[in-house]
Amino acid sequence: MLLNLNRMGPGRYVLYGIGVLTALFLLLPVAFIAALSFGSSQWLQFPPPGWTLKWYAAIFNDPRWVESIWTSVKVAFTVMVLSIALGLPAAFALVRGKFPGRTLLHAFFISPMIVPVIILAIALYVFVLKFGLNGTFIAFVAAHLIVALPFSVICIVNSLEGFDESTEKAAIVCGATKAEAIFRVTLPAIRLGIFSAALFSFLASWDEVVLGIFMASPTLQTLPVRMWTTLRQDLTPVIASVSTLLIALTIVIMIITAFLRRRYAR
Protein backbone atom coordinates (compact mmCIF):
# COMPACT_ATOMS: atom_id res chain seq x y z
CA MET A 1 0.00 0.00 0.00
CA LEU A 2 1.05 3.60 0.46
CA LEU A 3 3.41 2.61 3.24
CA ASN A 4 4.83 -0.41 1.45
CA LEU A 5 7.46 0.23 -1.17
CA ASN A 6 6.90 -2.92 -3.19
CA ARG A 7 3.16 -2.52 -3.47
CA MET A 8 3.08 1.16 -4.22
CA GLY A 9 3.04 0.95 -7.96
CA PRO A 10 4.66 3.45 -10.35
CA GLY A 11 4.17 6.29 -7.85
CA ARG A 12 7.25 5.14 -6.05
CA TYR A 13 9.49 6.28 -8.93
CA VAL A 14 8.27 9.82 -8.34
CA LEU A 15 9.27 9.46 -4.69
CA TYR A 16 12.64 7.99 -5.67
CA GLY A 17 13.25 10.90 -8.03
CA ILE A 18 12.42 13.54 -5.43
CA GLY A 19 14.51 11.66 -2.89
CA VAL A 20 17.60 11.51 -5.06
CA LEU A 21 17.29 15.16 -6.10
CA THR A 22 16.87 16.25 -2.49
CA ALA A 23 19.88 14.23 -1.41
CA LEU A 24 21.92 15.89 -4.16
CA PHE A 25 20.56 19.29 -3.17
CA LEU A 26 21.59 18.69 0.45
CA LEU A 27 25.05 17.46 -0.54
CA LEU A 28 25.68 20.05 -3.26
CA PRO A 29 27.10 23.01 -1.31
CA VAL A 30 28.97 20.76 1.10
CA ALA A 31 30.69 18.74 -1.62
CA PHE A 32 31.20 21.81 -3.78
CA ILE A 33 33.03 23.76 -1.09
CA ALA A 34 35.22 20.78 -0.31
CA ALA A 35 36.23 20.48 -3.97
CA LEU A 36 36.70 24.23 -4.35
CA SER A 37 38.99 24.45 -1.34
CA PHE A 38 41.62 22.43 -3.22
CA GLY A 39 41.21 24.44 -6.44
CA SER A 40 43.96 26.82 -7.46
CA SER A 41 41.73 29.55 -8.86
CA GLN A 42 41.52 32.76 -6.84
CA TRP A 43 38.23 33.45 -8.65
CA LEU A 44 36.60 30.18 -7.63
CA GLN A 45 36.56 28.75 -11.13
CA PHE A 46 34.94 25.37 -11.37
CA PRO A 47 36.15 22.87 -12.36
CA PRO A 48 39.42 24.33 -11.05
CA PRO A 49 42.31 24.82 -13.43
CA GLY A 50 44.64 23.05 -10.98
CA TRP A 51 44.85 21.66 -7.49
CA THR A 52 46.59 23.18 -4.48
CA LEU A 53 46.77 23.28 -0.69
CA LYS A 54 47.66 26.94 -0.57
CA TRP A 55 44.30 28.05 0.85
CA TYR A 56 44.86 25.74 3.82
CA ALA A 57 48.37 27.10 4.26
CA ALA A 58 46.85 30.58 4.16
CA ILE A 59 44.72 29.82 7.22
CA PHE A 60 47.62 28.67 9.32
CA ASN A 61 49.94 31.42 8.17
CA ASP A 62 47.47 34.09 9.16
CA PRO A 63 47.54 34.65 12.94
CA ARG A 64 44.04 36.19 12.75
CA TRP A 65 42.56 32.92 11.56
CA VAL A 66 44.54 30.84 14.07
CA GLU A 67 43.59 33.12 16.91
CA SER A 68 39.91 33.07 16.00
CA ILE A 69 39.95 29.27 15.91
CA TRP A 70 41.61 29.19 19.31
CA THR A 71 39.09 31.70 20.69
CA SER A 72 36.21 29.59 19.37
CA VAL A 73 37.60 26.45 20.98
CA LYS A 74 38.07 28.17 24.35
CA VAL A 75 34.63 29.76 24.28
CA ALA A 76 32.86 26.60 23.14
CA PHE A 77 34.62 24.48 25.72
CA THR A 78 33.80 26.87 28.57
CA VAL A 79 30.20 27.09 27.38
CA MET A 80 29.98 23.31 27.27
CA VAL A 81 31.20 22.93 30.85
CA LEU A 82 28.95 25.70 32.18
CA SER A 83 25.98 24.45 30.20
CA ILE A 84 26.22 21.06 31.91
CA ALA A 85 26.95 22.64 35.29
CA LEU A 86 23.79 24.75 35.06
CA GLY A 87 21.65 22.42 32.97
CA LEU A 88 22.12 19.21 34.92
CA PRO A 89 20.79 20.47 38.27
CA ALA A 90 18.08 22.43 36.46
CA ALA A 91 16.95 19.26 34.69
CA PHE A 92 16.79 17.42 38.02
CA ALA A 93 14.58 20.18 39.39
CA LEU A 94 12.35 20.10 36.31
CA VAL A 95 11.89 16.34 36.32
CA ARG A 96 11.86 15.58 40.03
CA GLY A 97 10.45 18.77 41.50
CA LYS A 98 6.76 19.09 42.22
CA PHE A 99 6.38 22.81 42.58
CA PRO A 100 3.81 25.14 41.11
CA GLY A 101 4.83 26.56 37.74
CA ARG A 102 7.09 23.69 36.80
CA THR A 103 5.91 23.67 33.18
CA LEU A 104 6.34 27.42 33.06
CA LEU A 105 9.92 27.07 34.27
CA HIS A 106 10.53 24.43 31.63
CA ALA A 107 9.22 26.79 28.98
CA PHE A 108 11.44 29.56 30.34
CA PHE A 109 14.54 27.38 30.10
CA ILE A 110 13.94 26.55 26.47
CA SER A 111 12.74 30.06 25.55
CA PRO A 112 16.17 31.16 24.19
CA MET A 113 15.47 28.72 21.36
CA ILE A 114 12.31 30.58 20.47
CA VAL A 115 13.41 34.18 20.82
CA PRO A 116 15.03 35.12 17.48
CA VAL A 117 18.80 35.26 17.96
CA ILE A 118 19.01 38.72 16.46
CA ILE A 119 16.88 40.08 19.31
CA LEU A 120 19.02 38.39 21.95
CA ALA A 121 22.06 39.71 20.11
CA ILE A 122 21.10 43.37 20.11
CA ALA A 123 19.72 43.17 23.67
CA LEU A 124 23.03 41.72 24.85
CA TYR A 125 24.93 44.21 22.68
CA VAL A 126 23.29 47.11 24.50
CA PHE A 127 23.82 45.31 27.80
CA VAL A 128 27.55 44.58 27.39
CA LEU A 129 28.25 48.05 26.00
CA LYS A 130 26.76 49.51 29.16
CA PHE A 131 29.12 47.46 31.32
CA GLY A 132 32.10 47.78 29.00
CA LEU A 133 32.18 44.04 28.41
CA ASN A 134 32.12 44.16 24.62
CA GLY A 135 34.87 42.15 23.00
CA THR A 136 35.59 40.20 26.18
CA PHE A 137 35.76 36.46 26.70
CA ILE A 138 33.01 36.72 29.34
CA ALA A 139 30.64 38.38 26.89
CA PHE A 140 31.13 35.59 24.35
CA VAL A 141 30.66 32.87 26.94
CA ALA A 142 27.55 34.45 28.45
CA ALA A 143 25.95 35.04 25.06
CA HIS A 144 26.68 31.56 23.75
CA LEU A 145 25.62 29.96 27.02
CA ILE A 146 22.14 31.44 26.61
CA VAL A 147 21.58 29.55 23.36
CA ALA A 148 23.43 26.41 24.54
CA LEU A 149 21.47 25.99 27.79
CA PRO A 150 18.18 24.89 26.17
CA PHE A 151 19.98 22.04 24.39
CA SER A 152 21.52 20.94 27.65
CA VAL A 153 18.23 21.11 29.56
CA ILE A 154 16.26 19.30 26.85
CA CYS A 155 18.78 16.46 26.45
CA ILE A 156 19.14 15.84 30.17
CA VAL A 157 15.43 16.22 30.93
CA ASN A 158 14.66 13.66 28.22
CA SER A 159 17.05 11.06 29.52
CA LEU A 160 16.17 11.73 33.15
CA GLU A 161 12.48 11.25 32.35
CA GLY A 162 13.38 7.88 30.88
CA PHE A 163 15.15 6.93 34.08
CA ASP A 164 12.96 5.40 36.77
CA GLU A 165 13.49 7.24 40.04
CA SER A 166 12.84 4.03 41.96
CA THR A 167 16.14 2.73 40.61
CA GLU A 168 17.84 5.50 42.56
CA LYS A 169 15.74 4.55 45.59
CA ALA A 170 16.82 0.95 45.14
CA ALA A 171 20.44 2.10 45.37
CA ILE A 172 19.65 4.01 48.57
CA VAL A 173 17.89 1.05 50.14
CA CYS A 174 20.96 -1.03 49.21
CA GLY A 175 22.96 1.22 51.51
CA ALA A 176 24.18 4.00 49.21
CA THR A 177 23.93 7.59 50.40
CA LYS A 178 21.87 9.99 48.29
CA ALA A 179 25.05 11.39 46.74
CA GLU A 180 26.46 7.94 46.05
CA ALA A 181 23.19 6.88 44.46
CA ILE A 182 23.21 9.92 42.16
CA PHE A 183 26.89 9.66 41.20
CA ARG A 184 27.13 5.91 40.90
CA VAL A 185 23.69 5.06 39.54
CA THR A 186 21.67 7.98 38.20
CA LEU A 187 24.38 9.93 36.39
CA PRO A 188 25.96 6.86 34.76
CA ALA A 189 22.52 5.69 33.69
CA ILE A 190 21.78 8.99 31.94
CA ARG A 191 25.32 9.49 30.63
CA LEU A 192 24.21 9.35 27.01
CA GLY A 193 21.90 12.29 27.66
CA ILE A 194 24.68 14.22 29.39
CA PHE A 195 27.01 13.44 26.51
CA SER A 196 24.45 14.72 24.00
CA ALA A 197 23.94 17.80 26.14
CA ALA A 198 27.66 18.49 26.12
CA LEU A 199 27.96 17.88 22.40
CA PHE A 200 25.03 20.09 21.44
CA SER A 201 26.15 22.81 23.84
CA PHE A 202 29.61 22.77 22.29
CA LEU A 203 28.23 22.87 18.76
CA ALA A 204 25.71 25.59 19.62
CA SER A 205 28.58 27.80 20.74
CA TRP A 206 31.00 26.69 18.05
CA ASP A 207 28.56 27.53 15.24
CA GLU A 208 27.03 30.67 16.70
CA VAL A 209 27.37 33.57 14.28
CA VAL A 210 24.87 36.26 15.14
CA LEU A 211 25.62 36.63 18.84
CA GLY A 212 29.32 36.56 18.01
CA ILE A 213 28.99 39.39 15.51
CA PHE A 214 27.58 41.64 18.20
CA MET A 215 29.91 40.51 21.00
CA ALA A 216 33.11 40.74 18.94
CA SER A 217 35.73 43.44 18.85
CA PRO A 218 38.53 43.73 16.28
CA THR A 219 40.84 42.12 18.82
CA LEU A 220 38.67 39.20 19.92
CA GLN A 221 36.75 37.24 17.32
CA THR A 222 35.44 33.71 17.13
CA LEU A 223 35.89 31.70 13.96
CA PRO A 224 32.35 32.30 12.63
CA VAL A 225 32.74 36.03 13.23
CA ARG A 226 36.00 36.04 11.33
CA MET A 227 34.32 34.14 8.50
CA TRP A 228 31.42 36.57 8.51
CA THR A 229 33.57 39.69 8.30
CA THR A 230 35.67 38.11 5.57
CA LEU A 231 32.60 36.99 3.61
CA ARG A 232 31.10 40.46 3.68
CA GLN A 233 34.20 41.71 1.82
CA ASP A 234 34.88 39.00 -0.75
CA LEU A 235 34.43 35.33 -1.57
CA THR A 236 38.03 34.31 -1.00
CA PRO A 237 38.82 30.58 -1.38
CA VAL A 238 40.31 30.69 2.14
CA ILE A 239 36.72 30.55 3.40
CA ALA A 240 36.29 27.37 1.36
CA SER A 241 39.21 25.73 3.12
CA VAL A 242 38.00 26.88 6.55
CA SER A 243 34.54 25.55 5.68
CA THR A 244 36.00 22.25 4.56
CA LEU A 245 37.82 21.88 7.86
CA LEU A 246 34.52 22.53 9.62
CA ILE A 247 32.77 19.95 7.45
CA ALA A 248 35.49 17.43 8.29
CA LEU A 249 34.96 18.20 11.97
CA THR A 250 31.23 17.61 11.54
CA ILE A 251 31.89 14.23 9.96
CA VAL A 252 34.27 13.25 12.76
CA ILE A 253 31.66 14.22 15.37
CA MET A 254 28.97 12.28 13.50
CA ILE A 255 31.13 9.16 13.43
CA ILE A 256 32.02 9.42 17.12
CA THR A 257 28.36 9.96 18.01
CA ALA A 258 27.20 7.00 15.94
CA PHE A 259 29.90 4.86 17.50
CA LEU A 260 29.00 5.90 21.07
CA ARG A 261 25.30 5.45 20.47
CA ARG A 262 25.84 1.95 19.18
CA ARG A 263 28.13 1.09 22.06
CA TYR A 264 25.97 2.48 24.83
CA ALA A 265 22.62 1.72 23.28
CA ARG A 266 20.51 0.10 25.95
Partner: peptide, 8 residues
Protein backbone atom coordinates in the same frame (compact mmCIF):
# COMPACT_ATOMS: atom_id res chain seq x y z
CA UNK B 1 10.43 -2.73 43.75
CA UNK B 2 7.45 -3.12 41.48
CA UNK B 3 9.35 -1.89 38.45
CA UNK B 4 12.67 -3.28 37.33
CA UNK B 5 15.16 -1.15 39.18
CA UNK B 6 18.40 -2.73 38.06
CA UNK B 7 21.16 -0.23 37.33
CA UNK B 8 21.14 -0.21 33.52
Amino acid sequence: FQRYTLFP
